[in-house]
């Protein structure tokens, strides 16, 4: 069984699906000979040719807009936006057209496209390269937003995203692109969308996170365990739609919930999860829901980025605070 880093798993999933489905094509800036700036599309153009692995002109609205036309013709485009900081020019097409093509044609045309983008901080990148703005997209009806947190989930979830008949934004936590390798069977088996993954069982509190922040969240859970506090850790994975039942079942068991997210606090996905628990799980709660998150500031230039992003200690502090109730 091959060992993959997260970025290698992304590459393997695209490679697998391109090999079995001629309708799958890849497009984006520098995805061809260069294999993408992070090498997500490494070797794909050599294998599948310039017609199926397309170096586009430098135009993000083009990348998402033409994907809509490709998808309407029955192709399955996987479009790469080089960094999430450049995705906003592509957002208009994704929001105004991709998300509603099925609805506004009563299913006559649909938009089975994947928009992939690396996101998040922690790699000392320049300005506009480190934001986590998944909540902006999660607000849009008609799309899915998916974030993997490990090589195996990157592989299985990306396959699912490519095969999904509706538009998917697939955000890749670039801080952990090469953080760990794990054995992933390259067998083309997808993971389910619209469900959370429970990574650790526990009965004292529920920790919910996604993407790279699961590193800190899992580390905090281990330290808490040393002190006799057993945290259940949930990888949200599908940011939209959210798997409410896994979250509510866990909170019913633990009575306490801390949500860890890298994004700015206000209006974040953590806020949505809090609202779900408040609406449908309030009577399970023994303590207030806490959010450990980034701040309502611009993502700082990299000298301050560690201060912006939640730390293991902050997660532990929040966990201990909810345990006081």
């Amino acid at each position: 069984m091959p060992e993959f880093t997260l970025i290698e798993a992304v590459n393997a999933a695209m490679d697998y699906e391109m090999s079995v489905d001629d309708n799958v094509i890849v497009l984006g800036e520098d995805v061809g000979a260069n294999g993408g700036v992070f090498r997500a599309t490494d070797n794909l153009q050599q294998k599948y040719g310039e017609l199926r692995v397309i170096d586009t002109p430098l135009a993000e609205s083009l990348i998402s807009g033409m994907s809509i036309g490709l998808a309407a013709q029955g192709l399955k485009p996987i479009a790469e936006i080089q960094f999430m900081g450049f995705i906003y020019a592509a957002f208009d097409q994704f929001l105004c057209h991709a998300s509603r093509m099925r609805n506004r044609t009563r299913g006559r045309l649909s938009c089975p496209m994947v928009l992939r983008a690396p996101y998040g901080g922690g790699i000392h990148a320049p300005e506009h390269h480190s934001e986590s703005t998944e909540a902006i997209f999660a607000h849009v009806p008609g799309i899915r937003v998916v974030i993997p947190s490990s090589p195996a989930r990157a592989y299985g979830l990306l396959l699912a995203a490519i095969r999904d008949p509706d538009p998917v934004l697939f955000l890749e936590p670039k801080r952990i692109y090469r953080a760990q390798s794990e054995q992933v069977e390259n067998n083309g088996i997808a993971l389910p969308l619209d469900v959370c993954f429970t990574l650790r069982q526990g009965h004292n509190l529920t920790l919910i996170s996604w993407g790279a922040m699961l590193t800190e969240t899992l580390a905090a859970a281990e330290k808490l365990s040393e002190e006799g506090i057993e945290a259940e850790v949930i990888d949200l994975a599908s940011i939209k739609p959210i798997d409410k039942s896994t979250i509510l079942d866990s909170v019913e068991k633990t009575g306490r919930c801390v949500i860890v997210c890298e994004a700015a606090k206000s209006g974040s996905v953590a806020a949505e999860i809090s609202a779900i628990i408040a609406e449908e799980g309030l009577t399970s709660l023994l303590a207030p829901i806490l959010r450990v998150s980034g701040h309502d500031t611009v993502m700082p230039l990299f000298k301050l980025e560690q201060q912006y992003m939640p730390s293991v200690e902050q997660v532990i502090t929040a966990a201990k605070k909810v345990m006081e109730y």
């Binding site: 609205s61 807009g65 809509i68 036309g69 490709l70 309407a72 013709q73 208009d92 057209h97």
Partner: peptide, 14 residues
Amino acid sequence: SQCLHSIGVAYAFK
């Protein structure tokens, strides 16, 4: 915005 959809449609033809 429709101009970009035509790019995808025509690319599929090509």
